[in-house]
């Protein structure tokens, strides 16, 4: 009777063509990526390098660019903008999410603002922010924060208010205060939802920072793209795209790492399966 039931691991290996499903996926991914790169190469070869450089040329330029240390300051500037924008937007999003979830009156006041700020295309604000704050990092951080904030507000609100009714009733039966219920029930319950909000916010902060750099900046990867456009240096543009993609992947990896650590702390060793319920790209 006293037997332990262990949740079945996800992604269990089903052999196909003598390969595990995971291995087969990797092989198929590699093959299709090779085909796509080949198509790119063929297409670029028949066109002017101004339209598109070949994959080989981009790789060579990337190595040169990074090797000469020219990438460092631009990547660093953009990373700072993403980080500060994400932290600022995230903190505000989580803060207002908690308020909206806990107090009906706060929700009624906050939500119209949220809807209005969501309806407003935030990138449209970039020019006025440049007038106010100049060509430094502030306008980029503000744009990144403005778009990072919404997914966190929404997911925090959702996570906190979706604790099962019977759990809330248990806390009521145990005479828990509102604060205790929030801390010991609603918040731990909301953690996975908040983390998926953090993931979206992180990607949006990246987009926000780069697009804001387009509007007026002399440093940062977005600024590099605009400079490259001005000098018809398509190769450099591609290099910046590659660096941005790598940056995005690195940020997502970092998020995944923190998420797994937190889930393991909350749910113990069995947390790996709970963490895997969030679809995640692994490279």
């Amino acid at each position: 009777m006293a037997s332990i039931r262990r949740p079945a691991a996800r992604g269990t290996t089903v052999p196909r063509f003598g390969l595990s499903e995971k291995r087969l996926g990797q092989v198929l991914f590699g093959a299709s990526a090779a085909i796509l790169i080949l198509i790119w190469h063929l297409w670029a070869s028949t066109n002017s390098p101004l339209i598109s450089p070949t994959p080989g040329a981009v790789l060579q330029r990337l190595i040169e660019y990074v090797g000469a240390g020219r990438a460092n300051q631009h990547v660093w500037i953009t990373v700072q903008e993403i980080a500060f924008g994400f932290l600022l937007g995230g903190a505000i999003g989580i803060g207002f999410g908690v308020l909206a979830a806990e107090f009906d009156i706060a929700r009624r006041v906050i939500m119209p603002y949220v809807i209005i700020t969501q309806a407003l295309p935030k990138f449209a604000l970039a020019p006025i922010l440049v007038i106010w704050f100049g060509f430094g990092q502030e306008p980029k951080i503000i744009i990144a924060a403005l778009i990072a904030f919404f997914p966190l507000l929404e997911n925090t609100f959702l996570g906190l208010t979706s604790a099962p009714a019977e759990m809330i009733e248990l806390f009521k039966a145990l005479r828990a205060s509102r604060w205790t219920t929030l801390l010991k029930c609603r918040v731990p319950h909301a953690i996975p939802t908040i983390f998926s909000g953090l993931r979206v916010a992180l990607m949006l902060a990246l987009v926000g920072a780069v697009v804001a750099e387009y509007v007026g900046a002399n440093k940062g990867l977005g600024a590099q793209i605009i400079v490259a456009q001005g000098t018809l240096d398509t190769e450099l543009m591609y290099v910046a795209f590659v660096l941005l993609t790598l940056l995005g992947l690195a940020l997502d990896k970092l998020h995944g790492l923190v998420y797994r650590l937190v889930m393991r702390r909350l749910y113990g060793k069995g947390a790996a399966t709970a963490a895997d319920q969030q679809p995640r790209v692994s490279v």
């Binding site: 009521k172 029930c185 909350l266």
Partner: peptide, 17 residues
């Protein structure tokens, strides 16, 4: 809710974390 009462619900309602 009275502290002298213990309540058992239809579901176990355990905190999974």
């Amino acid at each position: 809710p009275d502290p002298r009462i213990g309540y058992v619900f239809q579901k176990a309602v355990l905190l999974p974390w």
